[in-house]
């Protein structure tokens, strides 16, 4: 039987209460959201927090809505909520693409958007998707909120900029009417982590010129989950198959996959390039469809 080590349990009744509990219990306390990464890690003793602070009652953090020209996703939105959200899917179909291949439907009922990115697993899907669409994290502490680009959110495997007495409360994404986005993943079976996955977001100007490109990659050792060199290559160029293929080559060359049970380095690098091309193609098709 796999059972976590002993810990204290606290249930937060508000964001402020959660932050106060985090401050009181110190750095050995952990936030418990869906628990679908944390509880398995606790069973394996990969995590042994002294205190869990359950934030599942904080329904105010579960909203998915448009505010001004931004899509706002509460940190406690479940994966199933994001997958079901028409407003999220209409502005950023990449999020539906990604959610459809994250874990399985029952796990998606429980796992949360904020929990996934705070887990900071090097193979996490939403980390690549949010990097691609240049989302911003809203982090709350005792002194108020601060914002951090999702491209600066991760400080290493299983580590983020969220401090011990802080809570990720929301992700915000600017809405671009001229944009398109897509996510493609290769996995061994339903519910598995990716062998490799890539998300792309493009903004197209006149004659389909790329005015901005975002490419997020996961499970292939890309720094900050971003293919920055491929993005720089694409800006200002027309959205063509030739340029997407070249961007794929650049992205593959700059990522740093590791060999494991999901495949050797050369296979993962090949996937990184090919999936970059497919994600860009999908993003461009969607941007063009919106422009018609």
């Amino acid at each position: 039987m796999q059972v976590p080590a002993q810990f204290e349990y606290e249930r937060a009744s508000s964001v402020e209460h959660a932050i106060a509990l985090l401050a009181r219990h110190g750095p050995e306390a952990r936030v418990l959201a869906g628990g679908h990464s944390l509880i398995p890690m606790m069973k394996l003793r990969l995590a042994e927090p002294e205190t869990l602070i359950d934030i599942n009652d904080l329904s105010e953090l579960a909203e998915i809505e448009v505010q001004g020209d931004e899509l706002c996703i509460g940190a406690m939105a479940r994966h199933a909520d994001l997958l079901a959200s028409e407003v999220a899917g209409s502005h950023y179909p990449i999020l539906h693409d990604a959610e459809h291949v994250i874990a399985d439907p029952v796990v998606r009922n429980r796992g949360t958007v904020g929990g996934s990115v705070c887990q900071a697993d090097p193979s996490e899907d939403l980390s690549a998707a949010f990097a691609a669409i240049q989302a911003t994290a809203v982090i709350q502490g005792a002194d108020g909120t601060r914002t951090v680009s999702m491209r600066e959110f991760f400080t290493g495997p299983y580590d983020t900029v969220v401090g011990p007495a802080e809570l990720l409360v929301q992700l915000r994404v600017p809405i671009h009417p001229d944009g398109g986005s897509a996510y493609v993943k290769v996995e061994r079976r339903v519910g598995d982590w990716p062998v490799a996955a890539v998300g792309a977001a493009l903004r197209l100007g006149r004659r389909n010129k790329i005015t901005d490109a975002g490419i997020g990659m996961t499970a292939v050792g890309a720094a900050h989950f971003v293919a920055a060199e491929a993005e720089a290559y694409l800006r200002g160029k027309p959205a063509t198959e030739e340029h997407f293929a070249k961007a794929g080559e650049i992205a593959a060359a700059h990522c740093n996959p590791s060999a494991d049970q999901r495949g050797p380095v050369d296979y993962k690098r090949h996937l990184a390039g090919e999936l970059t091309r497919r994600a860009l193609r999908g993003a461009a098709e969607r941007a063009m469809a919106r422009a018609v």
Partner: peptide, 13 residues
């Protein structure tokens, strides 16, 4: 009302 995997939910939750 929602299906969950009860091996990954704490009773206290």
């Amino acid at each position: 009302g929602v299906p969950v995997k009860s091996c990954t939910v704490l009773a206290v939750m």
